Amino acid sequence: MAARIGGSVLVTGSNRGIGLELVRQLAESTSAPAQIFAACRDLYGAQALKELAQRHPQLLTIVRLDVADPVSISEASRVVGDKLIDGSLNLIINNAAINGPAVNNGNNPPGTLAVTGKKEMVDLFVTNAVGPMLIAKEFRSYLQKAADQSGPVTTGMSCSRAAIINISTLLSSVEKCRETFSMAPMYPYRASKAALNMLTCCLAEDFQRDGILVMAIHPGWVKTDMGGPNAPVTTEDSAKGILHVMSTLTEKHNGSLMDWEGNGIPW
C-alpha cells in the first residue's frame, strides 16, 4: 500500500507507466488522498486510467493536460481549480516526460549525438523542463492556499502540506555522467533532465517562503515503455518507493535530488 499522502494530489503523465501506477497506489491506499487529479495528454488512449477512475469515481478525476502546450496547462489549472474541494492543492508530481530521438539505423542507439539535432533537443527540453516550470507557475496559487491552511511556515514543510515533486533521473547528474554515459548516452534526455534539476533548485528557493517543498526523485531504471523490457525495477516497486520517500520528506530535503529508495544523488 502507498505511504500516507494527504489532501489533494495532481499527477502528470498518468496514462501509463510510473504515472499510472502512482495514481493506482494512491487511489487504492487505505489512507488515500481526498482528491486525485490524473493528468494526461491523450484521453482517448488512456483506457487503463479510465477503468481505474470508474472504480474510484468519487476520488479520481482525469484531466487533459499536455505539458508541451501552455494553453492546455492553463486550461487544466482552471479545471482542477474548479473541482478542488477547498481551493487548495497539496501535491504536484511532475511525472510526464519523453525520451528520444528513436534509433534511425542499427548503429546508433537512441539519443546519441549522431541522431540528435536541434528539434530533438528542443522537443525534449520543452516537455521535460519547460512544462514542469509552467505547471508550477499556473498551479502555484493552489499550493499557496494549501500551505497557508497548514499554519505558519515554521511548522515545517512536507508533501501533506504543499509540495512539488519532479520526477528526474540518475542520468541528469553532472557529477555521475562519467559513470553512466557509456551505458546511456541520450543527449537530449540527459540535458533536459539536468535543466529540470536546475528548475527544481530555483523553485525550491522561490517557494520555500510560502512553505512549499520542491525536490526531485529518480524513480530507478523502470520496466516501462521508456525504460524498456530489460529494466530491473517494476513500476509497482518504483511507485511504492517514490510514495514512501515522499511521505518522509521535510524541509531539510527541499531542493534535493534523491532516488526511489531514499538515497541522495549529487547534482
Rank of each mutant, 00 (worst) to 15 (best):
D123S: 07
G227K: 04
T154A: 15
L257M: 14
P33C: 04
L124A: 05
I135K: 01
W260Q: 06
A39S: 12
M258I: 14
I98F: 11
F125W: 13
G7L: 02
F37E: 01
R55P: 02
S168D: 11
A162W: 01
A102H: 12
A162Y: 02
V126Y: 06
L143H: 05
M157C: 07
P266N: 03
K118F: 15
V23M: 03
G106R: 11
T116M: 07
D42G: 03
F37I: 01
L199H: 03
G241E: 13
T169E: 07
I98Y: 08
A191M: 15
T169W: 06
I36H: 05
D210I: 00
G100R: 12
A3T: 05
H244V: 01
S88Q: 00
M183E: 15
L52H: 02
F139T: 08
G81R: 09
L22V: 06
D210W: 01
R78N: 14
D210R: 00
I98H: 04
C159K: 05
P232Y: 07
G17E: 10
Y142C: 07
M258K: 10
W221F: 08
R16C: 05
F207M: 11
L89R: 00
T180Q: 01
A136H: 02
A163W: 10
A231G: 09
I18K: 09
H244A: 02
A46L: 06
P132I: 09
V153N: 03
T250Y: 00
S192G: 05
N107F: 08
T200E: 02
R4F: 14
L171A: 10
E28S: 08
R4E: 13
M186F: 03
I18D: 06
S29E: 10
F37N: 01
G13L: 13
L249K: 05
I5K: 06
A34C: 08
I217M: 03
G100E: 13
I217F: 04
I93D: 00
V174P: 01
L22M: 14
C159S: 11
